[in-house]
């Protein structure tokens, strides 16, 4: 079991020793069930920290902001940022390291293991407890969650309220960390790509109907992109202008920027946006499921990424985020890569 007190102790220690600039962790929300990001600068503030299976967010996204902020500073504080990472989040760190977006010394990782459980899906839980206020969430080590509300304790089987990604997660402990809290307990999963296979088994037309209905809902709020730790490009095909514009960018360069995706939220443009995003995340997505969670219209975006994760595994034996020193999926090849689809 990860003890919250241990986490606080570690956090307090590194803040006291000035080892880190600040710590990004979780704190109680003022309005909902799920804890929200906490940015902790002072040792006294560590009391705010929480850790339980409702700590869903992938906080590594904030490293993108941190880097942007740092490049603007004249005399940047070179100390690392303390970061609470779960198993999936830690794999995101590995990707950012692999792509040299951050350096190892930029982060101090407080790894927390999900052990035999995972994090909850807010929507699933809300349905189960029908609007009651949750006071406490515990895991009873027998594949059940004990949810304490003002009405008392309820036992709910983990399978029914775990986030979809956790149901298919094999790496439920951090793979890179400076401090590890909890055990490196491996879970046995029969079929990590179960959810995808359901869609794969549909006919071509059924798959099209499914995706058309889903992607037509998109309002292009770009929450999926904003919440993703891998979506750190300065220039995205979905933007009308490039943020890489400087005083030296010529009018021609700006005028010639191709509008790959128009702003209209129509089917064709939504498809291009989401497919480009999926392709761009191939071999990089570590299935933290944040895109799907953030989507206000419940588009199952995880499936797109998960599909490519599955293909990367099956076609090329590639798994993302386990080794920061391996080359990325599409910047390497093997002679024996399959080519049965090529004439």
């Amino acid at each position: 079991m990860v003890s919250l007190e241990d986490l606080k102790k570690e956090a307090k220690q590194i803040l006291k020793e000035n080892k880190v600039k600040y710590i990004i962790g979780y704190k109680k929300s003022t309005n909902g069930l799920m804890p929200v990001p906490a940015f902790i600068k002072e040792p006294e503030e560590v009391e705010k920290l929480v850790w339980d299976p409702t700590c869903v967010f992938n906080l590594t996204r904030y490293l993108v902001d941190e880097k942007r902020r740092k490049t603007k500073e004249k005399e940047p504080d070179e100390r690392p940022v303390g970061l609470v990472v779960k198993g999936c989040d830690s794999r995101a760190i590995n990707i950012l390291l692999q792509e040299k977006f951050i350096n190892r010394e930029d982060v101090y990782l407080l790894g927390v293991s999900c052990e035999n459980t995972g994090v909850l899906d807010e929507k699933k839980l809300t349905k189960k407890i029908k609007g009651e206020k949750v006071k406490k969430v515990e895991f009873d080590e027998k594949d059940n969650f004990i949810i304490t509300t003002q009405e008392g304790k309820t036992k709910i089987p983990a399978k029914e309220i775990l986030a979809n990604r956790c149901l298919e997660c094999k790496a439920n402990f951090p793979v890179i960390y400076d401090v590890l809290l909890g055990e490196k307990a491996k879970r046995s999963i029969d079929n990590p790509f179960e959810s995808i296979e359901k869609i794969e088994s549909l006919s071509t037309e059924e798959r099209w109907t499914f995706w058309k209905k889903q992607l037509d809902k998109c309002i292009r709020c770009y929450a999926c992109r904003s919440v993703c730790p891998m979506c750190y490009c300065d220039e995205c095909v979905a933007d009308t202008i490039s943020f890489a514009v400087t005083a030296d960018t010529t009018a021609e360069e700006k005028a010639q920027k191709i509008k790959w995706v128009e702003k209209s939220p129509v089917s064709s443009e939504n498809f291009i946006y989401h497919m480009v995003r999926a392709i761009h995340l191939a071999g990089r997505c570590i299935d933290c499921g944040e895109c799907e969670r953030a989507c206000p219209l419940d588009i199952p975006l995880r499936f797109l990424n998960r599909k490519l994760e599955k293909e990367a595994k099956e076609l090329f034996g590639f798994e993302a985020g386990f080794d920061p020193d391996q080359p990325s999926l599409i910047s390497c090849f093997k002679d024996e890569d399959p080519e049965d689809f090529i004439r």
């Binding site: 071509t204 798959r207 058309k212 599909k307 890569d337």
Partner: peptide
Amino acid sequence: NFYARRRIALINKLLDFIGLEPQRFQMSW
């Protein structure tokens, strides 16, 4: 072309997954 082979394999799978007829996208040497 080795890089292409990987990349095209992925996009091929993705196009198929979203429900585009697989005959519509082909690669050849």
